[in-house]
Design a protein around this nucleic acid. Structure first.
Length: 228
DNA sequence: GGCCAGGACACCA
DNA sequence: TGGTGTCATGGC
């Protein structure tokens, strides 16, 4: 049990799962980007979207030399929407990117170094208050762009850990995050790698079948029936 | 031609 | 607070 929560894993088992994945799959080198600001924009663009499509949108921004906060704060929204069209939801995402960029410029002078000095809890609160930034996007920004020690929960995390019977299917985002934060050392490199490995497992082993047949995690702990 | 991808928000009861 | 609809392209 971790933190008295209704789950069936000990801290030692959770860490062992991480080490198993790292050994079997290898480091993922997340987040794929040339700069922390690119991570931020990528985090918005990848919402419910395949990464292949996000890469096209980012390439368009780079071609136009628009991948910087002041340019994105100033560009007309329809123009931005046209450039990020390949990533889907382009009208919504153009609005989100402009709102974040304006906030970033006004509050932190458009500097990641300045922003990173702010306390994590305050940053998270500020990010969640912005339109278009929910828990997963905020935590991705905190961990992968600002190197803050926080765990990113996504759909794969829920799917994998509930299917293996390691926690209840009705856990909230907050509960799932606490589960990992309480169970793991607060090391940015480990938290970075663990989420990336979970994403890899989700992509490659946990898509269509209700129970993954060749999942790397199967070798460590017995699978259980997925809770209904 | 249907399904899904590294979510979040609006609206409703 | 929980469930459902909407946003939208591109790959398989």
């Amino acid at each position: 049990m971790i933190g008295g929560m209704n789950c069936s894993l000990t801290k030692i088992e959770l860490l062992a799962i991480y080490q198993d994945l790292l050994q079997q799959i290898g480091p993922r080198h997340w987040w794929p980007a040339d700069s922390p600001f690119e991570v931020i924009i990528g985090a918005i663009l990848t919402q419910n979207t395949a990464w292949q499509n996000v890469k096209k949108a980012i390439a368009n921004l780079k071609d136009k030399e628009l991948l910087n906060p002041s340019a994105l704060a100033e560009i007309p929204e329809p123009e931005l929407a046209a450039l990020i069209r390949p990533s889907g939801y382009f009208n919504q995402k153009a609005k989100k990117i402009k709102i974040f960029s304006a906030y970033f410029v006004n509050r932190y002078q458009g500097s990641m170094a300045v922003m990173a000095q702010q306390e994590t809890a305050i940053l998270r609160q500020e990010l969640l208050a912005l339109f278009g930034i929910g828990p997963e996007t905020a935590d991705s920004m905190l961990l992968y762009a600002l190197a803050k020690p926080i765990f990113v929960v996504d759909a794969y995390t829920r799917r994998i850990f509930s299917r293996h019977g390691w926690f209840a299917t009705d856990f909230t985002y907050q509960q799932m995050q606490e589960f990992f934060i309480q169970g793991l050392p607060q090391e940015v490199s480990l938290l970075n790698e663990f989420h990336a490995l979970i994403d890899y497992v989700g992509h490659h082993y946990c898509r269509k079948q209700p129970i993954c047949q060749s999942c790397p995690l199967q070798t460590r702990l017995p699978l259980r029936e997925e809770a209904k």
